[in-house]
Design a protein around this nucleic acid. Sequence first.
DNA 1: CATTAAACGAGACGGTACGTCTCGTCTTTGC
DNA 2: GCAAAGACGAGACGTACCGTCTCGTTTAATG
Lengths: 199, 199, 199, 199
Amino acid sequence: MSTDASVKKTSRKGPSRSEESRSAILEATRAELAESGWRTFSVDSVAKRASASKQTIYRWWPSIGAMCVDAALALIPDSPDGGRDPQERIATLIVPLEAAARTGNGHAVLRGALMAAADDQHAGEAWRGWMNRDIRQPMRMVLAELAAKRVIRRDFDLDEVIEQLLGPLWHRICVIRGPVKEGYSMQQARYALRVYSTI
Amino acid sequence: MSTDASVKKTSRKGPSRSEESRSAILEATRAELAESGWRTFSVDSVAKRASASKQTIYRWWPSIGAMCVDAALALIPDSPDGGRDPQERIATLIVPLEAAARTGNGHAVLRGALMAAADDQHAGEAWRGWMNRDIRQPMRMVLAELAAKRVIRRDFDLDEVIEQLLGPLWHRICVIRGPVKEGYSMQQARYALRVYSTI
Amino acid sequence: MSTDASVKKTSRKGPSRSEESRSAILEATRAELAESGWRTFSVDSVAKRASASKQTIYRWWPSIGAMCVDAALALIPDSPDGGRDPQERIATLIVPLEAAARTGNGHAVLRGALMAAADDQHAGEAWRGWMNRDIRQPMRMVLAELAAKRVIRRDFDLDEVIEQLLGPLWHRICVIRGPVKEGYSMQQARYALRVYSTI
Amino acid sequence: MSTDASVKKTSRKGPSRSEESRSAILEATRAELAESGWRTFSVDSVAKRASASKQTIYRWWPSIGAMCVDAALALIPDSPDGGRDPQERIATLIVPLEAAARTGNGHAVLRGALMAAADDQHAGEAWRGWMNRDIRQPMRMVLAELAAKRVIRRDFDLDEVIEQLLGPLWHRICVIRGPVKEGYSMQQARYALRVYSTI
DNA sequence: CATTAAACGAGACGGTACGTCTCGTCTTTGC
DNA sequence: GCAAAGACGAGACGTACCGTCTCGTTTAATG
């Protein structure tokens, strides 16, 4: 879930990466994203708030956008085990995102990370990497299974379904700026099933 | 469709706003948004490219975000007259957006404007103002009519429908960065009708 | 005593130069010079304070420095008739300058004008023109007379004497920023006579 | 002789002030002062010419005026040891100033610094500080000694004497804009002795 | 142990851009 | 045709950040 360069070559002279510093930076990133938005967000402020040196930031992240994505992904919990019925199985995949959006400043942090991913090369790769791992692949499995059971059409387009599922959430977070209500994921899953259902 | 301060007090001493300068600035804004993205976008560059003074920009727009939104809205054509069948009537409302997204750099410009609207106070107001005028109100009429005819449920939530309709488009423009295909609006309208249909 | 372009072609169609506007501008110039100093002094402020248009300023003065010199010269009264004894006759020439320096904001205005004259082509010409007319030429007469009477040496250097007489005043106005006391001119005249006296 | 903030807290983390950058900035300041004068002098130009960042300038000097004063003071050599006779001892104090005024662009640089000192708070303090240290205090000693020997009057006013000595020099530099000839200091010292002599 | 290499905080540096202010010119409207 | 009003291109103001680069200090594995 992390995009930084910590490929830990464990045996090396000198001290290893300071976890303290890493988490302080991510925490500061979240706070600054919530206060400033993506465009006005500043590395200097993050460094100051985290009592970290800018060098430390640039050492471990390829760009500040990637750092923002990291900071956001840290808010997203792991998916619980999928439920029984189709709607629940689909919802399960996006429930962690919904959860993150409902934490304190999660709304703003997700917005920042999404914008970073749209603006910044590295951030975009980090974000799409996570999407592939945690959303796209699992979703493919679930949809394939549902298609096999004839619950949904067999010619679905995976990316289109994801677009239908996540688009509205992002719209709510970035444009409407309205709250993400309890059960939002279930509702989206229901809508998706309706759209792609065989009947 | 404009958010600037040109409330033309027609009889006033001195020269009036230069239309030449205005359009050069908006054109430069679009070019820069396409080249640089929202975060790295710079007023200096726009001014230079438009052979305009920064003062002229700050005189007429409350913020550069608002200027970006203006530049994007200028790409969106007026809605044609609505068609006959329900799906077409809904699609008609978002067809201009689809059209804008398919012009030369429209994809990038819309992305920039959307991000500006998410980051910047004034830009947000300008964008939501346009949404209300050109999307929300017409949509309310169409949906009310469809509800009266029992084509869709009568307890629909206007904003939720808009979220379902536009969310995926934005997702495609900002995250997926994939092309918006011909007929996208019709497809989204069909999906929406399915979700909210009475059957 | 004025350096502007008002070479009044007296019979001419249309309105002629507005004296009201002229004096308002010079008064505003003095006020701004006193408040802001030479470097921060601004034409816009003068125009605003004088309720005048910038165009009017640029129409009548070749540069803002020249305008500052004009504003200062307007503070300097005409020389009274020269006295009887040598010291008094010399002092008489610089008494108006001393007087100007002791009016309300005269200290600051003179400082501004002197700096304008040092920095600005036109202002320098205006200032030196005034110096020639009101200081240099009369002084040449007085000194020639005193030399003829053997009160001072006959090989005096006119400009050097003026330098000795005025230099300290300027130093006081610009650097020391101390008050110019009553009788300053007489004292300087006495010193000059001592320096150049035949004994 | 420097007015900047380099109060060298010798043991500090991080890099220390770059001497290279400091001297490049002062050199560029001198060049720009000579080319542009005080009012049109621009920090941007200095930064560009010195290949320095504006931030570096603002980091180390409280104002650009103070920087100009620094740039000028760097031109003024140390006083040589005072001579034997009274005139020479006084002249010695202002000889370095005369020397500076005769270097390449020293004339213009001194003019700029003097104007900066007249316009700008910090520059004024810097200039008067230097005056106190390098002119006023030594002069006080010399004059006291001469007064004790009855060469000059015992009730001289220190500041007035300085005014008489330096005023003409400044006048020449700023207004007359004439060259400062070899021996100028000696001449001024002679004049001063005459003015304040006991006979 | 002492050495040595990396990580860290602090922060100076050359730059770019910010949003504001001023310059000198130009244009429109009113007297 | 003069004057007020004020828009305009140009560019400097002083500040904030960018990403890079020393500095000294701290920490941990190696010799």
